[in-house]
């Protein structure tokens, strides 16, 4: 019982299936508060399903097992999912019932570098700008748990690097627990404290990454882990 107090997320024997097809198979997992977890896995390994289960977005699944997580959860999707009929700032503060919501949203927009886009329509933003607005919407709620489903997957390589740096800078103070689903082994290596590899609906590997930030790709510990992760994902690094 005591373990539950220090863990932000506790998952026990969690299974999910859709129309009889098992996607998550008896997953058990403890995540300490403030840990940054990257979830790697091939397409169809169940990464997104696990994230949607924790977000409470899988009413249509047959569920078994249980989990506990903080009430204050934000979700960052791959697409920005801004409401096209709301200005950027109205999107960021959507549903916030705080008297200072507007001022806080303005400050958060300035933080993500969109201070001058507050009253713009989402359709006028670039892909990277939309994702910044989406990040601002997620973090304005000061979540205890941030669930991110390949949030930078659709961005070009340079924008992705900038967004990764921005995310690290912003969560430095808030220190939420983060679960980041990603295809990108380097992204996982650069950002996460812990890397999980999901295979056929269960956790196949669990690695701690204790290197301090900022990291860069050529550090030996990362290179070794990269080769291992790529191999477990079915890619022979030597062939590239």
């Amino acid at each position: 019982m005591n373990a539950h107090l220090t863990h932000a997320v506790v998952i026990r024997d969690l299974s999910r299936s859709f129309k009889g097809k098992t996607v998550l198979d008896h997953i058990s997992l403890d995540i300490p508060a403030g840990q940054f977890v990257a979830l790697l896995g091939e397409s169809g390994s169940g990464k997104t399903t696990l994230l949607r289960a924790l977000a409470g977005l899988d009413d249509d699944a047959e569920s078994k097992g249980h989990y506990s997580r903080p009430d204050n959860v934000s979700v960052l999707f791959q697409d920005s999912r801004l409401l096209p009929w709301k200005t950027v700032i109205d999107n960021v503060k959507l549903g916030l019932r705080r008297p200072d919501a507007r001022a806080a949203a303005e400050a958060m927009l300035a933080d993500v570098g969109l201070g001058d886009k507050a009253t713009a329509w989402p359709s006028t933003l670039s892909g990277g700008q939309k994702q910044r607005a989406s990040l601002a919407r997620s973090l304005l709620r000061a979540p205890a748990l941030l669930l991110a489903d390949e949030p930078f997957g659709a961005l070009d390589a340079l924008t992705r690097l900038r967004m990764q740096a921005l995310l690290m800078r912003l969560v430095e103070h808030q220190r939420p627990t983060i679960i980041l689903v990603t295809h990108d082994v380097d992204e996982a290596l650069l950002l996460a404290d812990r890397i999980l590899v999901l295979k056929d609906g269960h956790i196949a590997e669990d690695h701690a990454v204790s290197l301090a930030h900022p990291r860069h790709q050529h550090q030996t510990e990362l290179s070794l882990l990269r080769a291992r992760l790529l191999a477990s994902l079915g890619v022979e690094a030597g062939n590239l």
Binding site: A55, G56, L57, V73, S74, V75, F77, D79, R81, L83, L94, G95, R137, R141
Partner: peptide, 16 residues
């Protein structure tokens, strides 16, 4: 459906 998910993640009230 993706926008409905957002509404549910943001805990929007029925009226909102």
């Amino acid at each position: 459906r993706p926008l409905v998910d957002v509404a549910s993640v943001l805990n929007l009230t029925y009226l909102t």
